[in-house]
């Protein structure tokens, strides 16, 4: 994936989440995570990604 392709899918993700609205965001991201997990189809890779995502987790300002 090129930098501009990454940029484009990032924007698409943000727009999809914006359209669904804030109350739906957590479930939307959970669904996306599940689809990504089954697409990656590699349990050790997914385990590592879960650990990376949880590492040094800091809440967003204002939370």
């Amino acid at each position: 994936m090129t930098a501009s392709e990454l940029d484009a899918v990032y924007t698409r993700l943000c727009q999809a989440m914006t359209t669904l609205g804030e109350p739906a965001a957590t479930l939307f991201l959970a669904r996306f995570a599940l689809l990504a997990i089954t697409h990656i189809d590699d349990s050790s890779a997914v385990t590592r990604l879960i650990d990376d995502a949880a590492e040094a987790f800091e809440p967003t300002p204002g939370d």
Partner: peptide, 9 residues
């Protein structure tokens, strides 16, 4: 929007 903000974080 909140989504761009959340993803940026």
């Amino acid at each position: 929007s909140f989504a761009f903000d959340l993803m940026r974080t």
